[in-house]
Nucleic acid binder design. Sequence first.
DNA 1: AATGAATGAGGCTTCATTCAT
DNA 2: GATGAATGAAGCCTCATTCAT
Lengths: 217, 217, 217, 217
Amino acid sequence: MTERRSTAQAEKSRTRREQILDAAFHTFARRGYRETAVDDIAAAAETSKGGVYFHFATKEAIFRELMRTTADRLAAKVDRAVAAEDDPIAKADAALRAVLATFAGHRTMARLLFVDALGAGRAFNAETNALHDRFARMIAGYLDEAITAGSIPPVDTAVTGVAWFGALNEVVARWLLADDPGHLEEAYPTLRALLLRSVGVSEARIASLPGSPAGAR
Amino acid sequence: MTERRSTAQAEKSRTRREQILDAAFHTFARRGYRETAVDDIAAAAETSKGGVYFHFATKEAIFRELMRTTADRLAAKVDRAVAAEDDPIAKADAALRAVLATFAGHRTMARLLFVDALGAGRAFNAETNALHDRFARMIAGYLDEAITAGSIPPVDTAVTGVAWFGALNEVVARWLLADDPGHLEEAYPTLRALLLRSVGVSEARIASLPGSPAGAR
Amino acid sequence: MTERRSTAQAEKSRTRREQILDAAFHTFARRGYRETAVDDIAAAAETSKGGVYFHFATKEAIFRELMRTTADRLAAKVDRAVAAEDDPIAKADAALRAVLATFAGHRTMARLLFVDALGAGRAFNAETNALHDRFARMIAGYLDEAITAGSIPPVDTAVTGVAWFGALNEVVARWLLADDPGHLEEAYPTLRALLLRSVGVSEARIASLPGSPAGAR
Amino acid sequence: MTERRSTAQAEKSRTRREQILDAAFHTFARRGYRETAVDDIAAAAETSKGGVYFHFATKEAIFRELMRTTADRLAAKVDRAVAAEDDPIAKADAALRAVLATFAGHRTMARLLFVDALGAGRAFNAETNALHDRFARMIAGYLDEAITAGSIPPVDTAVTGVAWFGALNEVVARWLLADDPGHLEEAYPTLRALLLRSVGVSEARIASLPGSPAGAR
DNA sequence: AATGAATGAGGCTTCATTCAT
DNA sequence: GATGAATGAAGCCTCATTCAT
């Protein structure tokens, strides 16, 4: 009985904890880190300030956890998409597509991950840095594989990873910040062609990818 | 006499104004907008809070002016560099080089322009947006010229402008946020090759640019 | 149990709220609205600035609530006094007596209601206006009844209400501001005779009221 | 020559001083004492803050001087009006009429004198007190004359003076604070009848005064 | 005489965090 | 576990006053 109750409590607690994370996620994304008061989070989570502080030590801790899990989720999605492809270039394509699709579906998530981290102040630079680094490295890794496989000529994959991520990031960010967002996917073919070309993939190969403009050169 | 005196005073006032802007510039860049107190600016400018408020209506006004003038200065530098070249691709090269060189010399300036704007909170998104837009458009403009001149094949220059700016931005930002910065210019040849290739410039043409890796020729 | 606890807490909270109102009441009355800092109120209430702001949104809100409740209390007292009399003139007498007695007992209350409202700045004119209007109308209402009952000849009760209130107000205010207050009630018979006479009540009727100067009978 | 210049300077100085007083008068009256910044006064006087401080030691000093001179002017006007009459009751009528006429013509002056003094904070109570006292005493003085002349029965003229002033003050104040002022003079016959009746002047005598309703009872 | 820049105390409000219940 | 009251350090801004020129 005690056993059962404590389990039930633990479950309820986990639920409440997630409620708070959820609320924080949306509130941070909508209003930004500094503009979000712990009270706002508590209200959105339908609990009290004290309740929030029972589950998290500080406001910063909430944000950090959110950053981490959100990034994890995205990275997992990308990994899954990549694993489904064989050809290195198809892998890259799949990865890009996965990122854009996720963002397109979760504007909020993107905002949190790519825009707000900076707004959170110097304290978070390490986090942000690590996050961007992680994605840049991920890209570099795939590029390295592609080079090894002979799919593309050798390049400085470290710099290229950063640049690709930056290009992607900016396109997403501009979309996030736009008053009238439009469809993020529309930019995809152009962006993909740009990125692939930048590492020496031939026009023919690019044109052969699914979704390329029909008669493309 | 009165004339002379008032002129001297006006000059001193202007000097003080600039002192404040300077102090604000550095403090914002070091600590971020939200993290910077008006008192900090005053202290750094060796004046008082009231002194700051004599010259600027609000903290925000200081930041806005800083954003504007900093962007102006950079844009002017780029324009000058571009005007010195004839060939569209050389122009692009010059522009990139100008941006990187400026940032390399003024880490602080870059931080303010590219990183902190986001930290300033939702209220500044319009400003930031406009700033990024300005540079993205600038790039798109040069790309359009290059297309018109037949130097590169047609592409969606709007998206490309954004992507280029993003790639550049990210490279700079990562450098800014790194613990051990290293030399920004080292990334330049790689980045340049990447960007030019992405819009279809031939390897030969890229290799012919000054500063390209020796063996590449 | 939870019930009991929450009730106890709510009660404590209400108590604290009133503590703050009380402290504000006295501080406003002693120093005036502008002169009173929220810190002063907090200190007087033996709590912190934050504590005050937990219970009230702004300093102005405190003042407004104070004005309202104080006026309510006075109006209720007058209404009760009036209801206890039958004859219109006796009603007027009772009302005047109630006001003066209340003020005499609570110098502070009077100060807040009649003097400080103006010190609160243009923003409060609406409030003050409404307050004075309320009392002037109250008087006018009783006068109208008296006219209807044939106890006094017809007069412009609107202007008369204002004038009566003004006379009363000034007598009270002068007493409030005097260095050596003396007894407010001493002025009462004179004031009452003045006011009643001003609306045509006969000397005989006035002399018959309780508390009239002996020899006047 | 020096002589002449210094005279000219003195004159200019006096002019400037008055300019400032004028500006202060209007600004205080429009915005209230606390809401008026010395900068506002300087701007309205078309001079600088320093200029203001050359002529006046403090903001308070300006206000005090304004109160005094304004009251002087009004008192002089009343005295003149009173001197023109013989009969005590006609004198009283003339005095009331003078006050109301002055206020009606100078809403601004009235506001400064009767409303704002309180808004200026406790520091001015002495001044305000003295001012109100002065007018109450003035009224009491005329009433004493009237009693001596046998025009009215004896009353406590001190209290009556205060009450009369209060009635007058309130009527004026309500007019000052009203959104849609209307004509102050319209209230005059009612007010006059009220006041005169209150000290035992007969209906017949009241009806005989100029401006009384034609067929008045 | 006048200017305008500078000063700095002080005001109101916000908010992350703590804690008794 | 949860609540909500309390704390107090900051933060931004205003403004009377001073002062060098």
